[in-house]
């Protein structure tokens, strides 16, 4: 654990981790502020309701995003266009440090996702939040798994078009959920559990693939 933390800090310092935690806190602040605002009684409630059911799910897209930030911060050091590429490759045992940093980034991402999903769940208990916390957890796990698969790929087409469908999926999921909430329906439980199962499978496969191949890919550059 200590080694993992040290390896992570060799590459990014404390900078990236603090940034992501701060962004998470910023989102919590936004959610809390909007919840408090929506509790204030106003004459015209249509705008507040519309805001909650349509605009707010866009914020929950942050959970899939947190799978990308921390991992890409480490993976980018295996790309020759990144400043510091040669320096980090010249360090002794840099391949081991790279593998440990990836493991640490995955661990931190998982912690952030658990925090985010818990916050999302607490929010959905108190306010009529359309997107199920399980769906956003599934999307976050799916993004993290795919980011692990494409971490060392340099082709921009592959990188962008493999992650982009997840964000489109997140948009569609929040749109459908909002529409269903207006009709008084919910996404069926079977769909939620199947998507969560698929996401966990992709996440585990991505993690195993990344840890198994990262040393070889670091040495190849």
């Amino acid at each position: 654990m200590k080694d993992m933390l040290r390896s992570f800090r060799i590459f990014t310092g404390n900078y990236t981790l603090k940034t992501v935690f701060q962004m998470l806190l910023a989102f919590v602040a936004v959610f809390a502020a909007i919840t408090l605002l929506s509790l204030i009684p106003v004459e015209d409630e249509s705008f507040a309701e519309g805001f909650l059911t349509a605009f707010l799910p866009a914020f929950s897209l942050f959970l899939p995003l947190c799978g990308v930030f921390l991992l890409n911060a480490i993976y980018s050091y295996n790309n020759p266009i990144t400043p510091g590429f040669k320096y980090f490759h010249s360090l002794p045992d840099s391949d081991t440090a790279y593998a440990q940093a990836i493991a640490a980034a995955n661990l931190f991402t998982l912690i952030i996702m658990v925090l985010g999903v818990t916050g999302h769940y607490i929010y959905s208990v108190f306010a009529p939040f359309p997107l199920s916390p399980m769906i956003s957890a599934a999307l976050a796990l799916l993004t993290t798994g795919i980011t692990n698969f494409i971490g060392n790929v340099k082709n921009q087409w592959v990188r962008i078009f493999s992650v982009m469908p997840i964000f489109c999926l997140a948009g569609f999921a929040s749109g459908f959920s909002s529409a269903m909430l207006e009709d008084g329906e919910r996404i069926p439980d079977t769909v939620i559990w199947i998507s969560l199962g698929v996401a966990i499978a992709v996440y585990v496969a991505g993690l195993v693939y990344a840890l198994a191949t990262c040393k070889k890919k670091w040495r190849r550059e």
Partner: peptide, 13 residues
């Protein structure tokens, strides 16, 4: 961000 403030070497280049 990844190349300017996020990059460890660019912060002290």
């Amino acid at each position: 961000i990844a190349d300017v403030t996020g990059n460890r070497l660019m912060r002290s280049a």
